[in-house]
Write a protein that binds this DNA or RNA. Sequence first.
RNA 1: GGCGCUAUCGUCUAGGGGUUAGGACGUGAGAUUCUCAAUCUUAAAACCCGGGUUCGAUUCCCGGUAGCGCUACCA
Length: 372
Amino acid sequence: MRELSREESDRRAAAGEPFALRYRVPRGEGRTLRFHDGVYGAQSKEADDVEDFALLRSDGMPTYHLASCVDDADLRISHIIRGQDHLTNTFKHLLIFEALGAQLPQFAHLPLLVAPDGAKLSKRKHGPVVSVTTYRDAGFLPQAFINFLCLLGWSPKNDRDFLTLDEIRDLFTLEGVNRANAVVNFTEDDPFDAKAVWLNAEHLRALPVDELSRLLVPFFEQAGLHASQEKLLAVTPLIRERIKLLREAVPAADFFFVSELAPYDPAELIPPKKGDPKREDLAGDAALARRVLETAEQVLATTPFDHDSLDKALREAAASLGLKAGPMFQPIRVAVCGRKNAPPLFETMVVLGREVCLRRIGQAAETLERLV
RNA sequence: GGCGCUAUCGUCUAGGGGUUAGGACGUGAGAUUCUCAAUCUUAAAACCCGGGUUCGAUUCCCGGUAGCGCUACCA
């Protein structure tokens, strides 16, 4: 109903008929709309191919197109940088800026981030993936996540991936931005792109220890563990290489901060025999583990509690038992940490302190006694 | 349907008329090691298809195909 007469239009409006206000796009004039996009280069579209778009809804509210252009014109925005899904909308915006008599800003459109199935990322379908709080709560560093995002659709072209904010600022150009959509890799069970996680680990390790330990505080608090700043400072270097996300520090280091170790499988105290690790006689090995722990108790009671002394004393003890380091250290590690995988033993024991180590080893030895 | 944008390893990308098509993540193997990590070495892995242009195209051009976007009184 493009050609309603003025009278007819006024009459209907006066009669209370609802109407939307549209932009009357010039037709049949052979006009070509053009602009230069900072990323996509020269863009053009025939005005005849642009539909008469709404400016005001029937309730009088402006549409996005009108509101954003008026706002941008009002604020004298110099650059409009947004998602590529607005690339074709830009022709409408050109018309609005023109009608406003406003100076045209620079436009640049960025490729879209899409899901592994190619669909554009949306709040509705990919809630947690598009929410920054998801990344913050998991313990992504802002600079790491920005680093990751910048690499989606842009490259420093120097074979480097780990970039600081300053480096990105120096190297980034709109012209260097890719024009194809980029896939963010995530799955049902893993919402994080592996490269984002890797970059986060890199940035984590680039942080000074005291800064990293400060960042860790809230994660321990949230887990209900009381981690003093001082102790956390000592623990941080031990877990720094072992975590990729800040929140992983809690499961990696909780045993430093609990008074009683969570129950663990006593079988882990027993070092595996070479050959068949499962089916050897447990009792014999349990006895061996007990001997290791008892020896360790004696050694630890008298050895100065620093890394080198512990290292030397425990290795000597191993030799005297005719054991290699592996089978010697496993029972101690499990007794002290409550798990098989943990930071290096001597550093760990130093942080825990003699008293705690002896108590935990004693408990483990008792457990084994009952087992045998 | 119309209009627009895009197309290199699984993913992010570099490159560009003649290359062993490079890097990174991830994956496999090995080294190191008190476990786990970290680290190092190493392997597998890509130019969408068809026509041109050219001595020669993955690269340039055209077409196709596919994907995405816009086509709302959503933003």
